[in-house]
Design a protein around this nucleic acid. Structure first.
Lengths: 178, 178
DNA sequence: GTGCTGACTAACGTCATCCGAAGTCAGGTA
DNA sequence: TACCTGACTTCGGATGACGTTAGTCAGCAC
């Protein structure tokens, strides 16, 4: 007997065919980090990689792919290039996470956590532990009042920004897509 | 002035070039939902879509893409096909989230949340609200002892499963010194 | 039977992604 | 000056993700 894992829709959203999810923030995020290599480059950035050849070696991708992905991530403001120089070396560039890039960390952790839980082989090779207390860390879904919530406890409602977007869309139906 | 958004590495992981992140659970997860359309199909599943043409219409993708993605998601156990029949209609298939698929919800929410926060235009059209108390819901990074944590509060450590994986890798180092 | 509809599959072309190999470029070292 | 190295770029080619258009197939309504 399947349980309900879906979210409820607010009354104003209810005829689901009346609005398009095209300006959806999930899609917007995927426009920035659409590819596997972008995710893995961010993973290595969180693990402390900063230099071009570190990304190439540790992610296990080719230099052209790394260059393309790094350029995109810089353009989108997730990483920033910063000149640096080691003793006896010329000035080079390194890549560091911006606040915007760092803020994607929960998404990465959520993917890691899901992989740990559901992959068929042994489980994940590494885990994140809170340095202060030694307890494992994870992402949890909570409301701002502090309750742990499940999908079924949630309602999807339009935001102030969404009100106008959604209304203007429903006037000429058949949501477009890409 | 850049702050530190990186995670610390456990002593046994410290020469970062000594181990490969290849069996990484992030990469394992991306092997299952690598594409934009897979994410968006899951989004619609959480919004309550179950039928083939709902996914096609609401995600805004072509039928072949929808069929391919749905087949993969069923193969990987995130969705399951279930026959159903409406009055005066013949038996059809519908797609429902399994526990494994439902467990990806935090990752979707994390992406949505990041998009809401950082996208350049207005912000997200919709938000998730806790039905019980009316407060907005979000994913947060916490340890099991209940502390909210930031990347800089975390240490990456090998798991029991990882110990052997990582050790066997470090015996024949791949491109260590070059 | 014929038509209709929802759920697909097949064929085709395009664009993105990625690898490998090779080339470029800047600036420090010998 | 010639060489070396890290950080790229360029080129060729394979694979995969999609869109569009055009079918197929099952079964209810007529």
């Amino acid at each position: 007997m399947p349980y309900d894992a879906t979210v409820r829709l607010d009354a104003t959203l209810d005829p689901r065919d009346g609005w398009s999810a095209e300006p959806c923030s999930i899609a917007a995020s995927l426009a920035v980090v659409s590819t596997r290599s972008a995710f893995l480059i961010l993973r290595e950035a969180f693990y402390g990689a900063t230099r071009f050849d570190e990304f190439v070696r540790r992610v296990g991708i080719g230099e052209p792919a790394a260059a393309a992905r790094l350029r995109e991530l810089v353009q989108h403001g997730l990483l920033e290039r910063e000149p640096y120089r080691e003793a006896g070396q010329r000035t080079r560039q390194r890549y560091r996470l911006t606040a915007k890039g760092a803020d994607l960390f929960p998404a990465l952790v959520a993917l890691m956590q899901w992989g740990d839980r559901w992959r068929e082989d042994a489980g994940g090779p590494v885990a994140l532990v809170h340095d202060g207390c030694g307890a494992p860390a994870a992402v949890r879904l909570r409301c701002e009042a502090g309750h742990d919530v499940e999908p079924a406890d949630l309602v999807l409602t339009p935001t102030a920004a969404g009100e106008s977007l959604l209304r203007s869309r429903s006037e000429h139906p058949t949501g477009g897509g890409r």
